[in-house]
Design a protein around this nucleic acid. Structure first.
Lengths: 109, 109
DNA sequence: TTGATATTTCCATATATATGGAATTATGGA
DNA sequence: TCCATAATTCCATATATATGGAAATATCAA
């Protein structure tokens, strides 16, 4: 992953509501949740939530689909894996002091 | 790790020069490098580099020590490990879709 | 159509971050 | 002391990000 792409991922996760959103959507699983439900769960006004959801989507950490009049957001596991892969492989270069307790069993996607 | 602490780590890594600095200092190893050398290596003016090094130090990703008239910066492996741990454990909660290829061999620090 | 619901876009405002030249502080050597 | 080196702080400026009310858009149901 290019360093510039990585900074965009980090930037997306550098805001409290957004990090909480990602955490929330991972917990919910692939089925996801409508924007309004996420806003309620995090106690954030709708326009603010909409802004943050767009940011996360732009970074490739979540994705959206329409279902009737609801827009369902769900975690994008690919984008999240890329970030973890970047930290463990690209950035840290398999350094034992960083990756010590983690072992890569197979090549990452 | 608290979600607010994690956003501070992500924020520190959300800037190109800073992420490159961390990568550079990890490569160099625990001995570290003086501020001026890092600035030259990344082709960044001294005051700008100083600003970014402070940000990284504040986040706990690097640390500084004086050696004569030089100030030596080195990667803080603890801070970096916390971030990886947060992503794999706290945030993703051991979700197979995210942690799939990684295995935690022992409890993290 | 009309109305209710779901979400987004618009936009003014506030706050935070990044940049780098000039001046300042700190250290060591002659 | 005087000079050169190393790094920081100061500060003006530029840019980016966050916030949320009001208005606009989209969908469905009666």
């Amino acid at each position: 992953m290019e360093i510039i792409e990585a900074t965009q991922l980090f930037s997306a996760l550098s805001q409290e509501s957004r990090l909480a959103t990602v955490k929330h959507l991972i917990r919910i699983g692939p089925r996801g949740a409508p924007a309004g439900d996420v806003a309620k769960a995090l106690d954030v006004p709708a326009p603010t939530m909409s802004f943050h959801l767009k940011e996360l989507e732009r970074a490739g950490l979540i994705h959206a689909r329409r279902e009737g009049r609801k827009i369902i957001y769900a975690a994008d596991y690919g984008g999240l894996r890329e970030l973890i892969d970047f930290l463990l492989a690209d950035c840290c270069g398999g350094d034992k002091r960083l990756c010590g307790p983690y072992v890569i069993l197979k090549e990452s996607a």
